[in-house]
Design a protein around this nucleic acid. Sequence first.
DNA 1: CGCAAATATACGCGCCACGCAACTTTCCCT
DNA 2: AGGGAAAGTTGCGTGGCGCGTATATTTGCG
Lengths: 203, 203
Amino acid sequence: MSGLRERKKEATRAALSWAAVRLTVERGLSAVKVEDIAAAVGVSPRTYNNYFSSKAEAIAFRYLERSLRLAAELRHGPPGEPLWEAITRAALRQLEPGPEVERMPPQEPDEWAAGVRVMLAEPALEAEMLRASKIAEKELAAAIADRTGTDPGSDLYPRLVAASVMAANNVALELFVQGGTGEPMEVLLPRTLRMVAAGLPTP
Amino acid sequence: MSGLRERKKEATRAALSWAAVRLTVERGLSAVKVEDIAAAVGVSPRTYNNYFSSKAEAIAFRYLERSLRLAAELRHGPPGEPLWEAITRAALRQLEPGPEVERMPPQEPDEWAAGVRVMLAEPALEAEMLRASKIAEKELAAAIADRTGTDPGSDLYPRLVAASVMAANNVALELFVQGGTGEPMEVLLPRTLRMVAAGLPTP
DNA sequence: CGCAAATATACGCGCCACGCAACTTTCCCT
DNA sequence: AGGGAAAGTTGCGTGGCGCGTATATTTGCG
């Protein structure tokens, strides 16, 4: 599992993904060629395609990884904890910056945030992010099914909870990057989760 | 709005979309070239690209249209109706086959259903369907905001409700096409909607 | 009936996903 | 430790696709 091979592979994948994000934020998606991303990491363009089958997939990979951590956290928590508390804790935990952030200190936070907004507006990106969401949702449904003793193949409950959690997550994230209110994710996310957990009666 | 021009355009778009679906169900996505779709409708390949920028988009268009009807139904219903009743009614209304179905009588329902399953398994398709979902979700959020007097730009409520409704819709649809239980959409959908509306406590 | 605008088509270019066949690196077993 | 198997990397080549541009054709409107 943690042989030299696997670790090197993951390092290359992360490097490619990160390079793709950085270049896209700097120049815009269409101005970045696959060749550029590969060159930035020091591999051949062909190798790039062994890791990611499109530019969008490389960029969305970072989001996918973070989303998958939600399900992983849920599995590794204390089994006795009430479901929704465990979910909220796992969701908050996923917000903590991973070890990859320290590699790229954002020197110009404002400019970078603007670039990210432009990046997320790309339709191709949007589709790939949603796909990542759905992959994570499947993992999450499996984890919830484990916890609640339901069957993800035939029961509605785990799927619905997983879908609702991702919905809450995405709504909070949207509102955050859109920056309407200045509230941080640590505030928005628990609020949306509480709302979907409690139900959504007309206010 | 309903000039000859517009209607012809919509007819061409629908024909292209439908041809794309039919050919894909018959042969599989990669075996269908854009040229084939254009030829089946009788327009040039370049014209095809004026309507849809990818094969996936053409296929997902039918799903998009149906999903958008949900928001439209919600707007055209009686304004006094309680929100969740209106939503449920609109969601069920959207299931009724549109006028386009009568044009293509499915001669072999079983074979066709199998083809649809294969089609939906394509990753590129999945991404496009999700994108369509999100477009519809935005419309739905706007409609809900109208009804409840909230602001879709800054309030969590309409976005969360819209996201939850689409989540319920998609979960029901997944379970239906996957065919685990033999229950029809008319049963699954109200159930998932009731669940997300009432909240999702641990069972 | 004729002009303006919108749409369809023809041509062409550059990018990109991917199969194939060598070559190199890592792993595992004795 | 060492050697063969397995996995990863790379170069080459190909076909399809997204799209810009220019031109022809059709529709809408006065």
